[in-house]
Design a protein around this nucleic acid. Structure first.
Lengths: 341, 341
DNA sequence: AAAAAATGCGCAATCGATTGTACAAATTGT
DNA sequence: ACAATTTGTACAATCGATTGCGCATTTTTT
């Protein structure tokens, strides 16, 4: 590791040629002779030449930095996704610039501005809960910034996205409850304006309808998908005249709330009450009883978005040619949904 | 938001002055008159001028990018720390470049090389479990890259670091067990070469010695601090002739392993056996019984390192003037350590 | 009032990589 | 053998911000 960085000029001097030739040689320019090209390559390797990213970015007006916007970096799912992206992108010389929105539209706008100032070439985003419109995001496309969504997406012209099949995940989850003998299944739903929660509700409806079970409107309880939301949902549900067999919650924390409220009310999970969640948060494996849930394949999702991004960038594809990738979720069956009969 | 970016030349043209004057005005150069300075400021604000980071970095030979190296981004503690750093650094216009080592020295070296190539001005690192020496890290200092450690540190000339007082945390943790009446307390320790685990062991020893309890050598069981390690430690400990009252584990996952092994062996926590962990992983609050543990104050730690970094950078302090910051850990008392008598 | 110092600003070079244009040499075609 | 191409390189400008130096103009000093 030498003290200062090697530049193309150093290589040029060494070879008694011009810097432009060195640059072209390293980029396989057709007008450079094979002899020169090989010579340059060799010296570059010998000196461990690493191009100066800033110079390149400045010249190109665009950096190899990828902006990433997530609600919170320390949510297990998001940090998994970021981990997956990092793995793929780092290998291709991209760097990540990570911003958090804390679920606030205001922060999301600020993050976008920051990324624009940083001249990122692409942005990967999972929108905040407050985000409904897409004007602030569309503005990026004027700047030629490529846009990729994951998980919480906005269907927008000229963007790519990667999601899991939330509907299928919810369907499998609900079907599992039905197969285990539960019938009066409550769905603790998330905010209707978020795609993923809408899809999860649909999957639930599909499963119920497909099994010939009529879903009463009161069975769908929309709450914030946090612990307190789950508790509220439980208390609300037990008031229902017809009784309750199980809860399919749109999020693991809500399921946790349901389980805790159930325990306090003396109802045993899974024998008196089935409970399932969504997300496969780490704690779901450790609680008693362990929670049946759906894995969102965060790492895989991150890798996929990253690959799309690299593909689009290297081949300079326009986002209009891009589309939506849907990953298969995985149902993780644990104890909370398997009554001992 | 206009189509293309505003440069100092645009401002210069607007004001009929030279770009250099604009640059100097924006940097409060003493040789620029107040009148010009104010005029420039005003126009810059009007056009929402944002300096081109790449140009600045290129000229300066150093970017406002901060390299961050952690074992895994999706470990709760680390993502908390990163979240904290991001909050502070983003506000001052720094960007993060995050790398993972997956606890491998090899990856750590690769990450360092990547960051050097990216011309980062500073690196914040929590070393991998495999890391013992500091040669690969010292090499950075020749390059003028400022170095900051957190949590898993290497005491090295000319670096700053932020840690929690692991010894105190372990002390409080152990004292709490003693106060609750446990006496034969096993310590499930982590790898001896890692500072934090050494300190946690010391805290345990302090508490025991201070309470007049003799620690038998077999009471200290060194294992990887994962679930399986905890299980092994449990089985090893129950063989001991004198019997066992409690386990203080150097990590939450190890504690989880102990609790699960205990359940399988029919020993009730906390009445038959006290268990405590270290780390305050989210799951510790949800398991049954909930786990007493020590919070590592990840977010706070991230903020502190970030502040140090900003301080050192803005005032151009040399790392030699730098030191170690120690945060107070917080003991979180839950059910796993409070026997009902 | 002349000399010395301070003030205010512009010119041009620089950071490192890229690229349009130009120009010479080598190759091809007729 | 001479023109028309093709091939291989070099020059110089460019991206945007910064900064040493120099040249006026103004202010201070003696």
């Amino acid at each position: 590791m030498s003290k200062s960085h090697i530049t193309i000029h150093d290589l040029a001097r060494e070879l008694n040629i011009s810097a432009s030739t060195v640059s072209r040689a390293l980029h396989d320019h057709p007008r450079i002779s094979k002899a020169t090209r090989d010579a340059v390559r060799k010296v570059a390797k010998r000196y461990n030449y690493q191009p100066n990213v800033m110079a390149t970015s400045l010249r190109q007006g665009r950096s190899k930095t990828v902006g990433v916007i997530v609600p919170r970096i320390n949510r297990n799912f998001f940090s998994n996704v970021i981990g997956g992206m990092e793995k793929i992108l780092a290998a291709s010389g991209y760097q990540l610039m990570i911003c958090q929105t804390h679920e606030k539209l205001e922060d999301e706008k600020a993050a976008l501005q920051t990324l624009v100032n940083a001249r990122v070439g692409a942005i990967i985003i999972s929108v905040s809960l407050e985000t409904t419109g897409d004007e602030h995001i569309r503005a990026l496309q004027d700047r030629g910034i490529k846009l990729f969504f994951f998980d919480r997406i906005i269907q927008s012209q000229g963007t790519e996205s990667v999601v899991i099949d939330d509907r299928l995940g919810a369907y499998m989850n609900t079907m599992h409850l039905i197969e285990e003998g539960y019938r009066k299944i409550i769905h603790v739903a998330g905010p209707e304006q978020i795609t993923i929660y809408r899809d999860r509700k649909r999957g639930y409806m599909d499963a119920m309808a497909g099994s010939g079970i009529e879903v009463l409107p009161e069975w769908i309880i929309e709450k914030p998908v946090v612990q307190a939301g789950g508790e509220e949902a439980f208390h609300q549900a037990v008031q229902l005249k017809g009784g309750v067999d199980a809860f399919f919650c749109a999020g693991d924390y809500a399921a946790l709330g349901v389980m805790q409220a159930a325990r306090e009310s003396g109802r045993k999970v899974p024998d008196d009450l089935g409970v399932t969640g969504f997300g496969n948060e780490p704690f779901t494996a450790f609680i008693q009883p362990s929670l049946t849930t759906v894995d969102q394949r965060g790492v895989e999702m991150g890798k996929r978005v990253a690959e799309k991004l690299i593909d689009c960038s290297e081949n300079d594809l326009q986002p209009s040619e891009c589309k939506k990738t849907v990953l298969k979720p995985e149902l993780i069956v644990r104890d909370s949904s398997k009554p001992n009969r």
